[in-house]
Amino acid sequence: MDVSILVLASASVPFGLIALHDIASGEARKGAFGAASAAWSLSGVLLVYLGVPGLIFFPGLLLIMIASSLSRVRRGGGALQYARPSALAAVLALVTIGLVML
């Protein structure tokens, strides 16, 4: 495997370490989503290397981020807490439409 691919794969490591830090600090849910994002990114690099089309990985990452944002929504917390998942969903929709149209 080329060094450049190892460098690309290592970009996920800092996020994985933050996720572990969150879990250790008692924020298990936040840490779990962080770990899922890091694992998804890392597996994306490995799977693209093995020949899987790379197009599915960015939408997948957005889905994990949307789920993470929605998991933090509290009842009676106001409409503003939906801003982040809504913005991410809009980006996901644009990316999906772009991929389909291209």
Partner: peptide, 20 residues
């Protein structure tokens, strides 16, 4: 600061990758 450092490290990895 840890989060900013993590994002900085990831950004550095991506920049290194594209420049290699």
């Amino acid at each position: 600061a840890v989060v900013v450092s993590a994002y900085g490290c990831a950004l550095l990895c991506y920049c290194t990758f594209f420049a290699m």
